[in-house]
Design a protein around this nucleic acid. Structure first.
Length: 363
RNA sequence: GCAGGGUUAGUGAAGCGGUCAAACACGGCAGACUGUAAAUCUGUUGGCUCAGCCUUCGGGGGUUCGAAUCCCUCACCCUGCA
């Protein structure tokens, strides 16, 4: 069964783990390293697919959990798959829904900061959170829909089935993203569970692939997700384990403080095979983290931070970040970034964007 | 002309004798944003030489230990009746 999916490395940077390459998918090539654009609910918020393309977006990552709730994976399948559904003809990724186990579980109503070591996080963490929408057991996860409270169940097998229905080119294995504040015993048990789930994902994936192949449908790849928090032997063990399972690529999961990224990635990259792509899941809220990730051998990245920041007035320029809502931009009739040739910088002023944000205008 | 009601910080609006520099909302000023429960959330918002002090509740004058709150008066705005 030939798999219409491969990865080739075209360049390496001496003295680092950085490399450039190409991921070949049934929906076209992805030049790496690259940021995969967040399209959680089968839309890149506030952008048309043409706009995503015009700024260099090569691939879009959607979310299994969100699409399962709305509109339903079966509807996406009937529409002809994720790309067809959202009019994106390029490569697509789906996250497994594993992260929502975390964000609807221990991080529920606290935000991710609350489960990191940041000062603000510790303060937030002290707030009581007496309800969680997700509970983990060895077999899988029981959720309550954040939309209407319906009790639902997700397992490695069901995540695979849903992802095949949604039909992205890259699927993530169903994992548990443990809180970095959990005790070591919990984290070790969680990584063991993630490994057991990875085997089940792989088995289910092969089974579905055989069915699809028989019908002449294209391959959809499966990437294993490395966990292990900040514990070196666990991270290395997890990476070795995932490397042994014949996945098409790897996701690196977890929640990091920026300062912890280099060392953690180094542990993982030293254990992973060179010839397969590596995706950093939720790479951080700073643009600089992207460059750090490249240096430490990551090929693809995703993060919702930048689209969210943009929606809330946080804009990046060659000179750094600015908050376009600030009063100093009220009468600034220059472009956001004078060295940028994008549509917005070419046609609109800071004063106008400032006005749109202050007016809650959607443009 | 007569009779009622009203005038509170940038705006709207509570307060009706002390715990009032004055609730709340909006507006303003900033901040946050990690595999998106986020077009969301947080802080702050009279002044100052800032654990205290000063000036504010339409203007002026009273009562009281104490007034945004009670009384008199002036101004303006509404609503009825002539």
């Amino acid at each position: 069964m030939s798999k219409d999916f491969s990865f080739e490395i075209t360049h390496k940077l001496e003295g680092t783990h950085a490399r450039a390459g190409v991921i070949h998918t049934p929906h076209g090539d992805i030049q790496t390293p690259v940021f995969i654009v967040g399209g959680t609910k089968a839309t890149v918020k506030a952008l048309t697919v043409e706009q995503v393309k015009s700024i260099g977006g090569q691939a879009v990552l959607a979310n299994t959990y969100h699409l399962m709730l709305r509109p339903g994976a079966d509807i996406v399948e009937q529409a002809g798959g994720l790309g067809k559904f959202m009019n994106w003809d390029g490569p697509t990724f789906t996250d497994s829904g594993g992260f929502q186990v975390f964000s609807l579980g221990v991080a529920y109503k606290k935000g991710i900061d609350a489960v990191t070591n940041s000062e603000r996080g510790q303060k937030e963490n002290a707030k009581s959170s007496n309800t969680q929408l997700a509970k983990v057991d060895e077999e899988g996860v029981t959720f309550r829909s954040h939309i209407d409270g319906t009790k639902m169940r997700m397992t490695p097998e069901s995540s695979m089935q849903l992802q095949w229905q949604i039909g992205a080119d890259v699927h993530m294995a169903f994992d548990e993203c443990a809180s970095p504040l959990a005790n070591e015993g919990y984290i070790r048990a969680s990584v063991a569970r993630t490994h057991a789930w990875a085997i089940r994902c792989k088995q289910e994936h092969e089974k579905i692939w055989a069915e699809h192949h028989a019908k002449g449908k294209p391959y959809q790849s499966l990437w294993g997700v490395v966990q292990g928090a900040r514990i070196e032997d666990l991270r290395r063990e997890s990476a070795r384990f995932m490397a042994s399972q014949d996945f098409d690529g790897f996701g690196i999961g977890g929640i990091f403080e920026p300062a912890e990224i280099p060392e953690t990635l180094r542990w993982v990259v030293e254990e992973l095979p060179e010839d397969k792509p590596r995706h950093l899941l939720g790479m951080g809220s700073q643009v600089e983290d992207l460059f750090l990730g490249v240096e430490y051998g990551m090929d693809t990245f995703d993060c919702i931070a930048f689209t969210r920041q943009a929606r809330n007035g946080g804009l990046y320029t060659a000179d750094g970040r600015l908050n376009i809502r600030n009063a100093i931009f009220k009468r600034d009739f220059g472009p956001i970034d004078s060295n940028c040739d994008c549509y917005t910088c070419q046609n609109y002023t800071r004063a106008y964007i400032n006005h749109l944000f202050r007016s809650d205008e959607m443009l």
